[in-house]
């Protein structure tokens, strides 16, 4: 299903409220939205929970979607604000010893089920975690989704030039973090950069 087909389907769902139709939209977008949330949050289960919440919000607010931007971009915006709220609430504990797997339950809603998964383990996630959520969001939408500055500009109501500068600054920070994780040595990924 291409983007135009998704747009047409969304128009139908807006009129009919069809959950079956929305299921087809979920099938198309769930993996990219999960990838975004996974990199934003650095935690698999939180990302999976987030994806569910994002689609529920998207469906229940469908009448607000105005087609000024693509539907997928609109869903990304919902995902961004959802992740931003989660990041603000999240308290990351560093236990002693750090690699002890007994990560304490966090202080979300009582008894919220947590699923065992690695947290912030990949070098990329460690580097991304040093960026602000806004910077992370920009990098992910530019790199993974290949969103243009014009579309992002409409989505986040910022000038394209501002977004471009912020993106370049964030990428530089990310690159430096990845290099410093290797003790200042170049990783294989950066061998060609210098």
């Amino acid at each position: 299903m291409d983007k135009e087909q998704i747009e047409r389907l969304v128009v139908e769902i807006k009129a009919s409220g069809s959950l079956e139709g929305f299921g087809m939209v979920i099938e198309q977008l769930q993996q990219p939205i999960f990838t975004y949330c996974y990199h934003m949050l650095g935690h698999r289960q939180e990302a999976e929970d987030a994806v569910q919440e994002v689609f529920i919000k998207a469906y229940e607010n469908l009448e607000k979607y105005t087609e000024v931007v693509s539907f997928s971009a609109w869903v990304y915006k919902i995902a961004y604000h959802h992740c931003l709220n989660l990041i603000k609430r999240k308290r990351i504990y560093r236990l002693v010893p750090f690699l002890n797997n007994r990560v304490p339950a966090d202080d979300r809603e009582e008894g919220a089920a947590r699923v065992e998964q690695g947290q912030l383990s990949a070098p990329l996630h460690r580097a991304l975690s040093t960026l602000s959520p806004e910077e992370r969001n920009l990098i992910l939408l530019r790199v993974i989704e290949e969103k243009g500055y014009e579309e992002l500009s409409v989505l986040f109501q910022e000038k394209p030039a501002t977004l471009r500068k912020r993106y370049e600054r964030a990428m530089k920070k990310c690159k430096n973090q990845l290099i410093s994780q290797k003790g200042g040595e170049m990783s294989e990924a950066f061998r060609l950069i210098r």
Partner: peptide, 12 residues
């Protein structure tokens, strides 16, 4: 970023 493996999910 694009090469970092991401788990597959199905939450539909």
């Amino acid at each position: 970023i694009t090469d970092t493996p991401v788990p597959q999910i199905d939450v539909k």
